[in-house]
Amino acid sequence: MFWQIMLGIWMAGVIAASFLMIRPIQGLGELGRIFIYHVPAAWVAVLAYLMAMANSACYLRSRDLRFDRQALVNAELGTVFCLLATVTGAVWSKAAWGWYWNWDPRQTSIFVLLLIYGAYFVLRNAIPDIDRRARLAAVYAILAFLTVPFLVFVVPRAYASLHPDLAMVNVVQRRLEMDLPMLLVFLASLAGFTGLYFWLYKVQVSLENLLCEQTVREELR
């Protein structure tokens, strides 16, 4: 319970700090504050997917259904954070570019991540047998993850993007364009979101494990 309360206070602090401690970002103005939430949400969406892939690989090696449940939970959490990143991005895009959606390479890549999650759930629903479902879903999760580096790193670099990476990170000179308070708030938000993810993950996994135990017990009865 202690950690949950700490997490709540931490996140409340991050929200307050995002309005109080940050100066308007150059070129983005007051709108730039949303990046305190947007970037960590996108980060967690990718992290959850990476975890889902690792769990899938563990499942294929060990054939232990526990890993399959973990992969499922990761995929579910990833979808939630991916939606958050997409929506915050679209809101910002409306305010800054005038359109909610214009298929900027960054928008494409986050949208494809959503599609991958969607296809993963569709595949799971289409296979009734538990072991077969776990196996095939694991293979798909690994295959689909291979395209993520293309979408996140290759495509936005190779094709012109308006996404304001350059306001935060100077790629040419390899340094951050953030001042100290902003960097601190951003890192705090990143830590808060990651903590939130791990807490949700723990709760969901124990829930899935309990549900599974219950099914086994009912079958034995």
Partner: peptide
């Protein structure tokens, strides 16, 4: 090809390949 092998084992085959393949094929 490998996605087709996955689809062949699923209960619903119809449009599943398109759904699975699109995000993978997008790059």
């Amino acid at each position: 090809t490998i996605l087709a092998a996955i689809v062949a084992k699923a209960a619903v085959k119809g449009a599943l390949l398109t759904v699975l393949a699109f995000p993978v094929l997008l790059p």
